[in-house]
Amino acid sequence: MDSSNLPIGTKASHERELQLDMDVLVGYILQTGVLLSMALVGAGLFWTWLRTGRTALDYQINRMNLFDFVMHEARLVAHGMFGPRLLVNLGITCLMLTPFVRVGASVVYFAGVLKNWKYTLFTSIVLIVLTYSLFLR
């Protein structure tokens, strides 16, 4: 049944409206994440340039998953070692967390607002697989 043809005020049309709100929520999460991460990476590179007169960041990270990576950055912040590399790393972390947060928000939305258990299950599976992949070694 096509819910968009139903008169306003029915349960189906209310559901349709909630789903439209979800589109907007997902859109904003993605946009904010990408803009924030690009700003962080850009600022980190600019800072490197100001400090050293060049923009090259010649370093590699050893085998670590996103969780190790975040913990490593948190330790740097805790020791007051706030430098351009940290900004670049935060930017990369923020970028990787963007789709993750989008999926997490979808689980909450399907469960809490739409009360659609089928899709709560599907998005939870996606979230679990992604969480597992972020903890890979």
């Binding site: 090259a56 010649d58 370093y59 990270i61 085998r63 670590m64 998953n65 996103l66 990369i92």
Partner: peptide, 18 residues
């Protein structure tokens, strides 16, 4: 995530490329 865990993501390369 799989490439990061394998140590293949190099921020020095990633920053300008991304």
């Amino acid at each position: 995530s799989a490439y990061l865990a394998a140590g293949l993501i190099d921020p020095g390369l990633a920053a300008p490329v991304v």
